[in-house]
Amino acid sequence: MKKVLVILLLAVVGFYLADVFIGIGFGNDHFVKSDEIKPVKDIYLQQTVENLKVSNAVTSIVVNFRGFDTLGEVTVLFLSVTALGSILYRKRHHAGDRSVLFSASSIVTAGSKLLFPPILLLGAYVFIHGHLSPGGGFQGGVIIATGFLLMLLAYENYTVSHNALSIVESFAGITFAVIGLMGFMNGGTFLQNFLPVGTLNDLFSGGIIPIIYIAVGFKVAAELTGVIYTVLNEKGDQKNG
């Protein structure tokens, strides 16, 4: 009975959603073109090339035009790590004592030791070149966290220092906020650019954008490694029910 009701409700919701979105259409230009009124997309793209000299428009929007969003988003991640730690808190028996997930064979341990430095290098490459090619702080940070995940799964007694993680994270967060506030000192707004912008498609271009994205990369990497480490430390009360 309940299932029938739910399916009816979902059918109504789905019908109206589909009606609205098919009315909008796929791949059309939704905006009226005129000289006075431009869609915000065109202004962003024009500003990206002419004023900021950044190749990747998504990066310039995430870091510069919508910088407050990114600051809030990094704060949300930090809050989620804190909530995870406080919800799963329990008196530890020994330091570094964690549930052994898999008893890894020597092939896995040797292979992950071999793969760990290239994964870190790939992550660093992705977030340093965030303003030139697809990628950026979030993606690079996640890739680095994946490398730590590999090591944590392969070695039973591999530990990550919580102090080091929190130091890296706070330092990256402070860098972001201070660079944002330094925009005020030059008479601008928050996250106003104050460094020379260079030329398009150079590694050193875009003013403050690469610096901020590197800070975001370190912060995301530290936070996600903290999430994985906290969850991995959790010992089940009983195995498989």
Binding site: S99, L101, I143, T146, L149, V227, I228, L232, E234, G236
Partner: peptide
């Protein structure tokens, strides 16, 4: 990166800790 690797691994650890 997030959907394939991290979300899956967090779900799997939770299942390991609770019921399958």
């Amino acid at each position: 990166a997030i959907g394939v690797a991290l979300t899956t691994i967090v779900f799997i650890i939770t299942i390991r800790n609770t019921v399958r």
